[in-house]
Structure formats: structure tokens, C-alpha cells
Design a protein around this nucleic acid. Structure first.
Length: 210
DNA sequence: CTCCCGATAT
DNA sequence: ATATCAGGAG
């Protein structure tokens, strides 16, 4: 992937339009962000934020969560979808973190991705917020926007992340995902993208294809 | 690759 | 009715 004017235009656009984009999952600490991020798979942040206050009031840390009844967890998180898998994931995660890491998540990519329910995307979210970003979060929005703009040709999030890493300065890795996600939610939407309002359209391969 | 899955917008 | 939403495990 070669550096093109579109990258500079995109970075400039994101800073102008989304200067203070941040994580939309409400959380008070590393524990809450990790659980919220797992629950956010194939579900809106808004829905996650609706159910987490009750969840975190009853289970404020990995210690209490590790002793939870799985059927009770399923009941609380049901509106987020995939609730059988997610309940199993967060309960298993809590048990492992309590047994092996004294109830505190280790902030290392190699360890995080081996923990139950945590893949590269969730690990990148955690490290971007509470550690040192070792990459760029590629979720459904970042993948879609990157493809439309021609920043990558791949579907595989790992390959998309490699392309983005080669194009984007390291000091922006943490924030740019939030900026792209805001852009993806408001303008470059999956269903009905607002190309007529988009300042990137003259640089966009998806728009040219329309 | 398939499966998991409820809520919302179109 | 169907596509989509801060994915991960088997």
C-alpha cells in the first residue's frame, strides 16, 4: 500500500470534523471497558450502555463476576444478542483473570488475545484506552470505510489493520478508530451512505463507482 | 467456514 | 422482510 494524497486528506478531514472523538462505551475502569467491549459484538454501543449499569452494579469487578450465576448473566445481557456465548465468555474471562492475574487484566496483546472472549479487536480497544496501542482497532465501521475509500482491498480485519498501520502515523493509532467510527456511523453508513454530504467523496473510490 | 442472536432502521 | 450493529470460538 502506497501513501497517497487521500490519506492526508482523510486525516485532515477527521481532525476537522471529529476533533474529540472518543470511546462511546460508558466505563469507569479497565474491567468495565473490557466487559462492555465483549458485549458490543454485533450490537450497538447504545444497547450495551443500557444494560451495563445494572450489570456493573451487581458485578463491580472480576472477583464478583467470577462467582456469578451464568443464567443470571444471560438474563441481564440478553438484549445485546449472542447472549449464550457472551455470558460464557465474560464468566470464563473473570475466572481466568482472578485465578491467574489477581483480578487485573494484563495490558499485553499476546496475553489478552489468548483470554476467553477477547480477540484482536477487543484487545486493541483495551490497549488504546488503558495501555499502549499496538495496532489499530478494525471493527465493522473501520473495515467498511477503509474499503470504500480505497485504503485497503481486503475483507480480513487483520490484513486491513496492516494496510492502515502502513498508512497512518503511529501517534494517531489510538484516536483514529474512534474518528473513523463516528464518520462511519454519521456519514459513511452501511445502508444509506450520505455521499452528497461527504467531504471525502472526490477522493472516494466507492463514490466514483456510483 | 459456520454459528451465535436481540434490537433497530430501512 | 431484511440488513446491520465497536466479534469471537470451534
Amino acid at each position: 500500500m502506497e501513501k497517497t494524497p487521500i490519506v492526508n486528506k482523510f486525516l485532515e478531514f477527521l481532525d476537522g470534523r471529529f476533533p474529540d472523538a472518543k470511546c462511546e462505551l460508558t466505563h469507569k475502569n479497565l474491567y468495565e471497558l473490557a466487559i462492555s467491549t465483549i458485549l458490543s459484538a454485533q450490537c450497538t454501543d447504545e444497547m450495551v450502555n443500557k444494560i451495563t449499569p445494572s450489570l456493573f452494579q451487581q458485578y463491580p469487578d472480576f472477583f464478583s463476576l467470577s462467582n456469578a450465576d451464568i443464567e443470571h448473566l444471560k438474563q441481564i445481557i440478553k438484549p445485546t444478542g449472542f447472549y449464550n456465548n457472551k455470558a460464557k465468555s465474560i464468566l470464563s474471562l473473570a475466572k481466568v483473570v482472578v485465578e491467574n492475574y489477581k483480578g487485573e487484566l494484563p495490558l499485553e496483546m499476546e496475553i489478552l488475545v489468548k483470554l476467553p472472549g477477547i480477540g484482536r479487536k477487543t484487545a486493541n480497544v483495551i490497549l488504546s484506552e488503558y495501555g499502549t496501542p499496538s495496532g489499530i482497532v478494525v471493527d465493522t465501521h473501520v473495515a467498511r470505510v477503509s474499503k470504500r475509500l480505497g485504503l485497503t482491498t481486503y475483507d480480513d480485519p487483520i490484513k486491513i489493520e496492516k494496510d492502515l498501520i502502513s498508512l497512518i502515523p503511529e501517534d494517531r493509532w489510538g484516536k483514529i478508530s474512534h474518528q473513523i467510527i463516528h464518520f462511519g456511523r454519521q456519514i459513511c453508513k452501511a445502508r444509506k451512505p450520505e455521499c452528497s454530504n461527504c467531504e471525502m467523496r472526490d477522493f472516494c473510490s466507492y463514490y466514483k463507482q456510483q
